[in-house]
Amino acid sequence: MLHRFANPTRFLRLSAALLPWTAGLTLILLIAGLFLALFGSPADYQQGETVRIMYVHVPAAWMALFCYSCMAGASAVGLIWKHPLADMAAKATAPIGTCFTFLALVTGSLWGKPMWGAWWVWDARLTSVLILFFLYLGYMALHNAFDDPTRGARSAAILALVGFVNVPIIKFSVDWWNTLHQPSSVVKAGGPAIHPSMLTPLLLMGLAFTTYYLWVLLLRLRAEIVAGKVRAVRLRRAHG
């Protein structure tokens, strides 16, 4: 099953069919999510209108972790089965995850200033997310640090797997340590502690970011495959 779709030529055909769907879904979900986030949801009784920052901050943070998990999973597949498409998927995910992590940090800062009185505090949640951001940057730098792309992919994959230990640390940081950051209110025992009028736009934005990830991932994967072909033709000429 995996190998059926893991063939680059077949992938190019499949992704061409999926691209318009991911694009359309992203735009529809994003418009609906933004509309509910800005017009269709109430202000928070404690945090006032700043609670609207949640609708971009929380999905961005979810995606930062989700992208890293995908990158580590694809890296593992690439390392174990030496599948070129898995390495490409990990490489293509890295810049997307970096952007989501950056957004989680910046929007968190913009939310922290009015609510905590500080742009930044060195607490467990914020610091572990900053480390995640540096892991993404390190992954991309390592991938490009070798003349031989397969060695770059191998080294970067090992970094991605070692760095995966940070993912549960981020998730549970709010329970393990005393932090200024509030604990989860959506994924928790006993169901979400958040009213449907706020949960709906939050989930819509989360879905929109997920389909955005798929959309841009497909684009970047196609770009990686094409770049690989260009490299192969040039190499053949240099040696032929």
């Binding site: 950056f102 957004l103 913009l110 009015p114 959309w215 841009v216």
Partner: peptide, 25 residues
């Protein structure tokens, strides 16, 4: 509610970054 200087930049930065990443890809 007085928080426009924090709420709007959050949304604008998000759309700009996601748009730029798409254009780059």
């Amino acid at each position: 509610g007085g928080y426009g200087a924090y709420v709007w930049p959050s949304f604008v930065i998000t759309l700009v970054v996601l748009g730029a990443l798409f254009a780059n890809s």
